Every structure is written in structure tokens, then in C-alpha cells.
Computed example of a mutant assay.
Amino acid sequence: MKPIIAAIPLALLLLAGCATSKQWEATGGSKSDGIVQLSYEQGQFENGQSNEAQGLTTATGRCQFWGYKGAERSGTEKSVCRTMGKFNCLETTVTQEYLCKK
């Protein structure tokens, strides 16, 4: 009986998910509107940890390539379930928009 009780906290810890470092990647946007969309994918048991500075650097690079001077974060991250399982989301896409600065 004691081994079962001892295993319960370990099982809960494993099911809670692991913090996983995620890299933002340019996935969309509009040069004429000066908007860059960055995203990363997150699995069912992942707790994605994004790096805000890395996202800003990526967005700034895209904006500068388009002829703008820089970028700034716009709004909040949006999470969309890409693959729905029987009871919960299996894969999520997290997206953040950035505005290019003139």
C-alpha cells in the first residue's frame, strides 16, 4: 500500500507538464500593414516558456528586412488548439503579433 501512495505524487508531477524553452519563428504577417506574426508549437504536457527578447529580435529583423526601423510587441499571446484529442488539446499554436516601427 505504501509504494502506491508514494507513487501518486510522482505521477502527478509527471502529468503536470515540464517547462520547455520555445523559440519564436516568423509564421505570417503583412509587409504593407507592418505586422509580423511569430509562433511556436506546444505539446499536450508541455509548459512552453518563450523568450520575449528573442521574439522581439526576430520580429525586428523581419521588419528591418521590409524597410522598417524596428518592431514592438502588440497585444497578448493567442493560443489556438491545432489537434484536439478525445478530452483535451494535444497540440497548441501560440502566436504573438508585432508592429513594425517606421
Rank of each mutant, 00 (worst) to 15 (best):
Q23G: 10
N51H: 03
A59T: 08
Q49F: 05
G70A: 15
G70E: 01
A11E: 08
E41A: 08
A71E: 06
G28D: 07
I5Q: 02
E52A: 03
A7I: 05
E72L: 14
S32K: 01
A59S: 11
A71G: 04
K102I: 04
I8P: 02
L14R: 02
W24Q: 05
L56I: 08
K86R: 06
K31N: 14
Q49M: 07
E97P: 09
T92E: 06
V94T: 03
T76L: 07
L13G: 15
E77T: 10
G28R: 01
N88A: 12
Y40N: 06
A71M: 00
S32R: 04
K102D: 11
V36C: 04
K102C: 09
V94I: 08
T92M: 01
M84S: 15
G67D: 03
P9R: 12
A71L: 07
P9D: 02
T27D: 12
G85D: 05
I8M: 11
G55I: 10
R82S: 15
T20H: 01
A26F: 03
E41M: 11
T60P: 02
W66Q: 11
L15C: 07
Q96C: 10
S74I: 06
A7N: 15
C89Q: 02
C63T: 04
F45R: 12
Y98M: 08
D33C: 14
G67I: 00
S79Y: 12
V80P: 02
L13E: 05
Q54M: 03
A7R: 10
G67L: 01
